[in-house]
Amino acid sequence: MADLEVQNLAKSYDGKTKVLKDISFSVKNGEFVSILGPSGCGKTTTLRIIAGLIPETSGQVLVDNKDITKVPVYKRNFGMVFQSYALFPHLSVFENVAFGLKTRKIAKSEIKEKVAAMLELTGLSDLADKFPAQLSGGQQQRVSLARALIIDPELLLMDEPLSNLDAKLRLKMREEICRLQKKMKMTVLFVTHDQQECFAISDKVLIMKQGHIDQFDTPQTIFHHPRTEYVARFIGYDNFVPVSPNSCQDNYHVKAGETVLTTTEDCLNAKVLTIRPENIVLDLKEATQNTFDGKIINREYLGQSFKYTVESKLGEFKVEEARQKMRSSGDEVTLTLPAKHLHPLSE
């Protein structure tokens, strides 16, 4: 496994519109990095350029500081797992997994040994003689993973590998991928549109928006300190309070309309403040700051909690409250936005 570095990658299919603009990031040896974004944000394009399946318009891809941008796909020593699994339908499980070794002209006895070990590792030993059409989705995905790993790739690329599986199997495969990654100390680049999935398994997450990187951080940092409104929306921040321009008084107090709000983070360049629904408190008695009146206009039952829509002078707020006592539409409440949960965003 190896380090990956992507420098100023750009891609345009028609010479006019750029689907990728100036993508730069690096993945260290043994790191699990996810690219997260909605469909059409360029995440798969980025992955396919790194794999060598499509040419870049400009920029470089480096592996262990060697420029491989012009190296053809079949000479890059990568493994790739496709969303559709892309197993060879005419070959058995054993032959599928052995394929990469055969093209590398490795001795038959060694191939046999290595494939057997890999099938053992991925729990496929009993299925060696089956054909892809005879396997379930989860089994096919495991074969696809085994085929990618057998060549001991410098980098493992995964393009939405779990999205064709049902919810239960997805969780199981996720754990399995995690386990293999730790065990083999793989460098992984994982493309997904599922926020939960990628936060659960990644060391770092790269959030893409319309062809550029919006934030590249650890899941914890992104979760607690989203850099932009786009990222915040993507990871479940539902409430956005626009800030009056140039109203920041002393880096920690800012005006929204006529209300002064307090933050614990520097809000000098803030355009908008954001808070998660579960961090807003209703009817807090000893509240001294960031508190104002509201009225409940809608209620949703989420199982462990209720989600209320509350109307106030600062606009509508989504509030999640985990308590048994149910509030009803029309109830008057006071909202408190705890300063430590109120994040200023500059974009």
Binding site: L53, V73, F78, M80, F82, F88, P89, I151
Partner: peptide, 25 residues
């Protein structure tokens, strides 16, 4: 069409991939 790409990733040149993957299928 991904199965052909999977072949390239596994180290097949496009020419070889045509005979080993496309033709059999």
């Amino acid at each position: 069409s991904h199965i052909e790409e999977a072949g390239w990733i596994c180290g097949c040149s496009p020419q070889k991939g045509f005979f080993l993957i496309v033709l059999p299928n």
